[in-house]
Structures are given as C-alpha cells and as structure tokens.
Design a protein around this nucleic acid. Structure first.
Lengths: 161, 161
DNA sequence: GCTTAAAAGTTTATGCTTGAAATATCTGCC
DNA sequence: GGCAGATATTTCAAGCATAAACTTTTAAGC
C-alpha cells in the first residue's frame, strides 16, 4: 500500500506545466526589467525603440511600416508612434515607396546606425553578464528546449484559428 | 583565475547566451500574448488585473497597496489604477487600516473571489493546453533550469546595487 | 469607366507601466 | 510640544500596447 503505481495523482501534470509557465515568466520579466533599466539609464532609450532599430539595422533598405509591425509582432498603430519618436531624434526617417503613395519605408539614418551599434554591443554585454553563471552547455540545452516549446505553442495556435 | 583555453573563438559563449535570452523572450511573449487574448475575450479582463486578483485571493485579509506592489514587483503608482478599476467593477474594495490613516488594504469582495476562481481555473486549463505537447518530465527539467537562471540573475543583481 | 474590396498607414480610446513629484500621516528625537 | 525624516499612497507626464474606426490609395471585376 505504500507504493502505488500512478505517480501524478497528488500533483497533476497540469500543475507542473503551470509551474513551468510561471518560472518562464519570472525569468523573462526579471531579465527584461534589467535590460530596460540599463537602456534607460545609459542610452536614454527603451526596449521597443531598441527592437525597432534592431529590425531596421538588419535589413539594408529599411522596412515598410506594416513589415515592421509584422516582424516585431506588434500592432500597426504602435509602430507609428515609435518611429515618430525615432524620426524626431534623428535616428530614422520615412521614405516614400515609389509607385505606391500609401506606403513608407522606415530607414535608419547613419547617426541611427552608429547609435544602434553602440547599444547593441552593450546589450550583448549585459545579457552575457546577467546569464554569466549559466554554463555554456546548459545554455545550449535550455535554448533547445525553449525552441521546442515555442514550436509547440505555435502549433497549438493554428488549431484554434 | 585565467581562462585556460581559447575554446570558442568562432562562436563566442556570449552568442549562445544571447540566443538563450532571445528564445526565452520569444517563448514567454508568445504564451503571454495568448493568455492576454483569452482573458480579454472570455472574461473582459487583463493579465495585470488577473495578477492583482491572484495576489489578493491568496491572502485572507487583503494586502496594503505597497505590499501589493512589492509582491507583484510593479511600481506603486501602477497598482493604484488597477485597484481603482477593480473597485469600480465591484471585485475589490479598499479598507482603512485601523491606526494608520495613510494605509489602505485592498480586499476582494465575495463577487471578486468567485470571479477569480472561474478565471484561475480557465487560466490553468489554457496553460496546460498551450504547453500540452511538452512532456511532463521535460517540463520539470526545464522548470529546474529556469529556476537556476532566475537565481543567477538575482545574484548578479545584488552585486551592482 | 465605375464600383467594390483590399491594403497601408494614422488616429482614437483605453489601459498598463514607469519614475518623479506631491500630499498626508506617522515616528522618533530633542 | 515641535520638528525632521520616514512611510503610504496618489497624481502626473511620457511612452508602450492593443483593438477598432477611419482616410487614402491601389487593385480587381465587370
């Protein structure tokens, strides 16, 4: 009577999945908060701005507003404001797409590119510092597990659309 | 305390840590977005509201505003607005702390408690569904790795304060 | 050519979030 | 008693985020 075969009667599987989610959230928020703080203090910028500049930096000829919101997975209206502010600060500009009077293409100015390079270097340094105690091999393992989680979640997304 | 060998010259360790961070962020945002959407559609509420109600539900006699912001790790001013709206909707109320005219204690009404129970049940169901393809054993392993990451990050936090 | 639908982008309303300043109250010290 | 400093909370300004409504332009169908 001591050893019953079903293990997870007391603790249903759903609990371990819930705990996984809560830890994931906690880790992510923790790191994110740190990065936001440093971006603010050292570069007077924000994570969303950094993300937009990062996306624009990667592609040469800039991105249309809708492409930008697609890549970053944020709403269309959101991008408008962020790009507005980047333009105000001289880090980006809007360029008419020839042949389509509706569309713009957001592009980093050379000043924007230079600034982003500084920020990106610091960003990578910070992440390395924050996760410094995670051994490389463990980091890779964790990466792989997380990639699978993302894949699963994406799959389960399709089915309820 | 010198590094013995120049192992990772081509792919520095910092890159694998950066990738870990990006995957962590992606997974977390993905799931979070799903949960937000469902809370909105099925309960006309938001994740921050859910979090506040969750914190208040767990403790019997409610929490002071500052305790609440401490537990949830959000700013003081933030909590004010969220509790305001919960009060408007009849899910919570503010109660004077006897002997301290500055302090309030936010408490769930019985209606709030009932509503939260419905929401929490659905929430756990959703998480289980979203992470349904992650095998239990893998979920536990991932949980443990993440817990360590959080611990590491917290440690590295102390040292720069 | 005209109409209708789709696409690109902005605007609006609402809520979350922060840091900083403001208000009120409490506590300890002299 | 009076006052300095700490504590509890709110208010404020700015930015991020979404969904929904709205303009302008383009594309398709007939």
């Amino acid at each position: 009577m001591t050893s019953t075969q079903p293990l997870t009667v007391v603790e249903p599987v759903s609990k371990s999945r819930l705990r996984l989610w809560l830890r994931l959230l906690k880790a992510s928020r923790h790191i994110e908060a740190k990065l936001r703080e440093r971006l603010r203090l050292e570069f007077a910028t924000t994570l969303p701005r950094f993300d937009v500049m990062s996306a624009l930096y990667r592609v040469g000829p800039g991105l249309k507003m809708s492409e930008l919101s697609g890549v970053l997975k944020v709403s269309n209206g959101n991008v408008t404001g962020i790009v507005d502010r980047l333009v105000e600060d001289g880090y980006a500009l809007r360029e008419q797409v020839p042949g389509d009077k509706r569309a713009f293409r957001a592009i980093l100015t050379s000043r924007g590119r230079a600034e982003f390079e500084r920020q990106a270097a610091a960003h990578e340094r910070w992440v390395d510092e924050l996760l410094g105690d995670v051994e490389p091999e463990r980091a890779v393992r964790l990466s792989d597990l997380l990639a699978e989680v993302v894949k699963h979640v994406e799959d389960s997304e399709e089915k309820d659309n």
